[in-house]
Simulated scan of single mutants.
Amino acid sequence: MSAQPTVAVIGTFLVDILGRPVGDIPQGQASVRIEQIRITAAGSGAGTAVDLARLGAKVYGVGARSTDVIGTVLAGLLADEGIDSSLLKVLDGAQTSASMLPIRPNGDRPALHVPGINGLVRVSDLTFPAWEGIDGLHLGGVDAMRNLETTELVGVLKAAKSAGVFVSMDVQSGRPADNRSDILDLLPYVDVFMPNLEQAQSLVNAVDPEAVLLALLNHGAASVILTLGPDGSLYGSGVERRRTPVYPVEVLDTTGCGDAFCAAYLMGALRGVDVPERLQLATAAGSLTATGLGSDAGIVGWDQLVDYVRAADVRGRLG
Rank of each mutant, 00 (worst) to 15 (best):
M1K: 09
V9A: 04
I10W: 09
T12C: 13
T12H: 14
D24V: 13
P26A: 09
G28S: 14
A30Q: 15
V32G: 01
E35A: 15
I37Y: 04
A41V: 07
A49D: 12
V50G: 02
A57I: 07
Y60E: 04
Y60W: 12
S66Y: 06
T67H: 14
I70Q: 07
T72D: 15
G76V: 05
L78I: 05
D84Y: 10
D92Q: 14
Q95L: 10
A98W: 03
S99W: 00
P102V: 03
R104Q: 14
V121R: 05
S124N: 12
D125L: 08
W131N: 09
H138T: 09
G140T: 10
M145F: 11
E149K: 14
T151K: 12
K161W: 10
S162D: 15
A163D: 07
A163G: 10
A163Q: 13
P176A: 00
S181T: 15
D185S: 15
L186N: 09
P188D: 10
V190L: 09
E198S: 13
A206C: 11
A211P: 11
V212M: 06
L216Y: 06
H219K: 14
S223V: 13
V224M: 08
L234V: 11
G236A: 14
S237Q: 08
D253K: 10
T255Y: 02
M267I: 13
R271S: 02
V273L: 08
V273I: 15
P276Q: 07
R278E: 08
Q280P: 00
A285P: 03
S287L: 07
L288T: 03
A290Q: 06
A290G: 07
A297W: 12
G301Y: 01
W302K: 02
L305D: 02
V306K: 10
V314P: 01
R315N: 09
G316R: 04
G316Q: 07
